[in-house]
C-alpha cells in the first residue's frame, strides 16, 4: 500500500501454503515485502479521484511506469498526467532518492521530495516506491482478527528506521495470500492520520496486483483519494522512459 508503483503488485506466491505455515512476528514483514515487490518493469494507467471537503471531486488519469532497483541499481518511476487537459503533460520522475515535478507550461523541473503529495491528493510520492516494511518497521504485536470476511494477521508496527513518514502503523495482512488489505498510519503522538484500504486485487501473469486503493485522510474530515488501476503490463520498458528528456518530449 505504501509505495504504489512497483507496489501495485503482489507476487503470486506459488508457495503461499508453505508461507502461511511458517509465518511469525519475525518473518511476516519480509514475506509481505516479497509479495509486493517484483523484479520486472511495470506499467499501467490509473485514475485518481480526489475528494476535498466542500469541493467537487477531481478526476485525473495518469500513465505510470516503474522499474525496480534490481535492474538499474536504483529504483525508478515516471508518471504523466493524461487528463484533465489543463494538467496534461505534468510529470513526476523518481530516480533513487531524487524526485522531480515537470510543469509543461513553464517547461521547468522542480525538485520534489518523497513526502510531497501527488497532484494535491492523499497519495505521497513515497507511496509510489517499493515496499520496505521489513527495513523500516518491526512488529511489536501480532494478533489475529477478521477484516470483513477476510481472516487476517493484525500487526502493530513501530519504526526502526529514520527514513519513515509515520512513526507507527497498524497493518491487516490476509492470512491466505499474505497481502496487506488495510493500513492505518499513526503520527509520533499516536494520532491516526491516514487509512489505506486495498479491497480489490487482480492476478496478471501469475502475480497479484491492486485494482483499487482508497486513501482516507483521518485528520481533515472529508478528504480522500481513490486509485483505480487499468492496462497493467509487466513488459520490459525502454531505458529512455525514465529521463527528464522523455518527460519534456511527451508533453509537446
Amino acid at each position: 500500500m505504501r509505495r504504489l508503483t512497483l507496489f501495485l503488485i503482489a507476487i503470486y506466491s506459488l508457495s503461499f501454503i508453505l508461507v502461511a505455515q511458517d509465518v511469525s512476528e519475525n518473518n511476516i514483514l519480509e514475506l509481505v515485502d516479497e509479495k509486493l515487490n517484483f523484479q520486472s518493469d511495470f506499467s499501467c494507467q490509473f485514475t485518481m479521484v480526489t475528494y476535498r471537503a466542500g469541493a467537487e471531486p477531481s478526476t485525473q488519469k495518469m500513465s505510470l511506469f516503474s522499474r525496480p532497483e534490481e535492474i538499474d541499481g536504483e529504483e525508478k518511476f515516471l508518471a504523466i498526467v493524461m487528463k484533465p487537459d489543463i494538467d496534461k503533460g505534468t510529470g513526476y520522475l523518481g530516480q533513487g532518492d531524487n524526485y522531480w515535478i515537470y510543469d509543461p507550461e513553464s517547461r521547468r523541473f522542480s525538485h520534489s521530495s518523497a513526502r510531497d503529495t501527488v497532484q494535491d491528493s492523499d497519495v505521497n510520492n513515497d507511496d509510489l516506491g517499493t515496499a520496505d516494511f521489513n527495513t523500516d518497521y518491526k512488529v511489536v504485536q501480532m494478533t489475529e482478527g477478521m477484516l470483513g470476511q477476510i481472516d487476517c494477521w493484525i500487526l502493530d508496527l513501530v519504526a526502526i528506521s529514520d527514513n519513515v513518514d509515520y512513526q507507527s502503523i497498524k497493518l491487516w495482512v490476509g492470512k491466505k495470500e499474505l497481502l496487506p488489505y488495510k493500513e492505518q498510519d499513526f503520527s509520533l503522538t499516536g494520532t491516526l492520520m491516514r487509512t489505506v484500504l486495498a479491497p480489490k486485487w487482480t492476478v496478471i501473469e501469475g502475480k497479484y496486483i491492486y485494482r483499487q486503493v482508497f486513501f482516507v485522510d483521518e485528520i481533515k474530515r472529508g478528504n480522500r483519494t481513490i486509485l483505480l488501476f487499468d492496462n497493467v503490463s509487466l513488459n520490459t520498458l525502454p531505458d529512455h522512459l525514465f529521463t527528464k528528456a522523455y518527460l519534456e518530449g511527451s508533453s509537446r
Partner: peptide, 15 residues
C-alpha cells in the same frame, strides 16, 4: 489540530 512533521520529517499531529 496542527498537522506537521517532526524535524526529521515524520508525520505528526499536535492537539
Amino acid at each position: 489540530l496542527l498537522k506537521t512533521r517532526t524535524l526529521d520529517g515524520v508525520n505528526n499531529v499536535g492537539d
